[in-house]
């Protein structure tokens, strides 16, 4: 791997407090093309402007904190390589996620999403078989290895509550009450047959019928949740219930 660094200009959305006027600041830095956008942001904070605020924690896509818009598209900054979003001498534009309240600069308040996930009691840990293997789409794994005691493995679910899907969703843009992709996916994963409260929510005005099929949620989801597919599957399930006059 070459050690040559690139010169990259970061154009970063700045705003101090939710009510102040936003503007953009430019920072030109030397950075290795194999490094990640989040590394660039942290470098800028460390050496260029200590007042910059941004969200981050795990730096490897397990926490979902560093969601932002990179050149207009929702990404986790920690897994977005510099080389994939610009070139030597190029620019990278960073903006906070849409459809969430702004805290400052690149930081939004994901509280509304966490609150809704809490309301639909999205499970914090799930059996392994409830999460498919890589590359198999939304299907249970063909062969789930068992623990030494024969019990199932338990793991943290795929959805990392990063909010990228909500930011990309044109319906969430104009409807604050819409449950949104991540929350509907959490309902789907738990099952509406087993959870009458979730059926009622999914089948409500702000549930699956609110979706306008832009499929942006699945396009930006960094974690293989495929919320759009799950919303459509919920529609199918609900229609099937209605046709069978199920209660």
């Amino acid at each position: 791997m070459s050690d040559e660094k690139w010169t990259v200009t970061f154009i970063i959305h700045r705003q101090k407090g939710p009510d102040s006027q936003p503007h953009f600041d430019e920072f030109t830095i030397e950075i290795h093309p194999e490094e990640f956008v989040l590394d660039g942001v942290e470098y800028i904070w460390a050496y260029k402007d200590r007042s910059l605020v941004f969200r981050h924690a795990c730096h490897h896509t397990t926490c979902g904190a560093c969601g932002m818009r990179v050149n207009g598209v929702e990404k986790l900054a920690c897994m977005t390589k510099i080389a994939d979003v610009t070139q030597d001498g190029g620019k990278i534009k960073l903006e906070p996620l849409r459809n969430f309240p702004i805290v400052g600069d690149l930081v939004v308040d994901l509280g509304p999403l966490y609150r809704k996930m809490h309301e639909v009691h999205a499970p914090e840990v799930i059996p392994l078989c409830a999460s498919p293997w890589e590359g198999e789409g939304i299907k249970p794994p063909q062969e789930t290895p068992k623990r030494e005691d024969g019990e199932e493995y338990i793991r943290l679910p795929d959805c990392i509550e990063c909010g990228l899907c909500v930011s990309a969703c044109p319906t969430a843009a104009s409807d604050a009450e819409y449950l949104g992709p991540a929350v509907l996916a959490a309902i789907h994963i738990q099952g509406i047959d087993e959870n009458p409260d979730l059926l009622a929510l999914a089948d409500s005005r702000e549930g699956v019928w609110r979706c306008h099929s832009a499929y942006e949620c699945s396009a930006v989801c960094p974690s293989n949740v495929d919320p759009a597919w799950r919303i459509m599957d919920l529609r199918k399930q609900i229609i099937a219930r209605r046709l069978k006059f199920k209660k």
């Binding site: 969200r55 926490c63 904190a65 930081v107």
Partner: peptide, 13 residues
Amino acid sequence: GPIANGTSGRTHG
């Protein structure tokens, strides 16, 4: 920063 932005966020786990 936000919660766990230092070493804590970036552990092996």
